[in-house]
Design a binder for these strands. Structure first.
Lengths: 209, 209
DNA sequence: GTCTATAGGCCGATAGAC
DNA sequence: GTCTATCGGCCTATAGAC
């Protein structure tokens, strides 16, 4: 590491420019949208020349699609609690509900959602990437979890997938809408907790035993 | 009408160009987004010169804001059934649910939503216009309706506003998300009916007596 | 791989005639 | 009010040196 051979480079420095480009472009696109961001602006923000960008990405559309797709896969963590065997149902739903309701109004997710919605007609792959990396993924896991809980007699349900969609819809609620159309203010943690509790209550009153 | 005086014009012809501009711009913005539509394209589509557009609108941003704001106020009809005295609750919720769930995936509403979401950070007035002309309006009316029904002993609820939000959230469900991110296919009328029925069921199991 | 320089086009907005 | 003509600028993308 200290003595670099002829053909070596420091690992952190290798391919540094591409990373700078990705980060700068990602930041600008998420904040300003596809149409309002120029390649000049990205080059300036990344500290490289425009030609360097074109050495790594065919054109602006490809750069945009690559970055947003990447972002879609990255921002949905922390649903491990749905993998475990169903314990106390209310507790699990409340915990999942709080995490998910919070995530749905977080700046990163809101910005990514805006990009995907705005450009979905012109970049169809973004819609699929967003859905499958986010809402679709969690909905599938929740449905499986609910089906297992039902098999254990912890609740009574007809269609597990529908029930999962309903629970997630209750978490989306008005706060998500207000966040994506920029209607302040953002919900406080207390309001998030209230929404998660209300969703859990309603869900268990409908399907609990 | 047949004999036009010196200073008269046929009423349908008066101010025809401005209307052509509005219609053409509206169509193009809704289909392609703010950034992807040029003033040249609008002029071409409207059959007028660019200078004529600038005689009626200060600049592109003002034209866009005016049209989208207009569109926001226009597309939420048919909630008269919430003004009447509460009759059969299940019937009313099911009827409202069907209309609303259908509206939420209609092309016009989906396109308007995309515009508002995409440009909300740069045109804050759009978010307010959309919310107050659409979801906010209907939520307020539904909350009032539910409160009246509760006063008549038809259901038991804590917070009417929260309950209204929950019912509307259940109607939004996954179909709205899939529509706005362009994930085909659009739900069939049968699927819409199923969603409305499921929302009504869940709501009444939670709050009905 | 990365730069500077620039091609070539389209954009928003305006001037001035009618 | 409406047009034609045009300005200055910024945009995407590339050529060519190193």
């Amino acid at each position: 590491m200290g003595t670099a051979g002829k053909l070596e480079r420091a690992p952190g420095v290798r391919a540094m420019k591409p990373r700078q480009i990705r980060e700068a472009a990602s930041r600008l696109f998420l904040a300003n949208g596809y149409g309002a961001v120029s390649m000049d602006a990205i080059a300036r923000e990344a500290g490289v020349s425009k030609a360097t960008i074109y050495a790594h990405f065919a054109d602006k559309a490809e750069l945009f699609a690559a970055l947003v797709t990447e972002e879609c896969a990255r921002q949905w963590p922390d649903i491990g609690l749905l993998e475990a065997e169903p314990g106390d149902l209310r507790e699990t739903l409340l915990a999942l509900g709080t995490v998910y309701a919070e995530l749905l109004v977080s700046p990163k997710v809101v910005q990514t959602y805006r990009m995907v919605v705005a450009e979905a007609p012109r970049f169809p792959e973004l819609g699929r990437a967003f859905y499958e990396g986010g809402p679709g993924l969690i909905c599938g896991k929740l449905a499986a979890y609910l089906a297992r809980a039902a098999a254990q007699g912890k609740l009574t349900l007809g269609d597990a997938r529908l029930a999962a969609q309903q629970f997630l819809a209750l978490l989306r609620c008005e706060y998500h809408l207000r966040a994506v159309i920029d209607l302040a203010p953002a919900p406080t943690p207390a309001e998030i907790a209230r929404v998660a509790a209300a969703a859990t209550d309603m869900f268990l009153r409908a399907y609990g035993r």
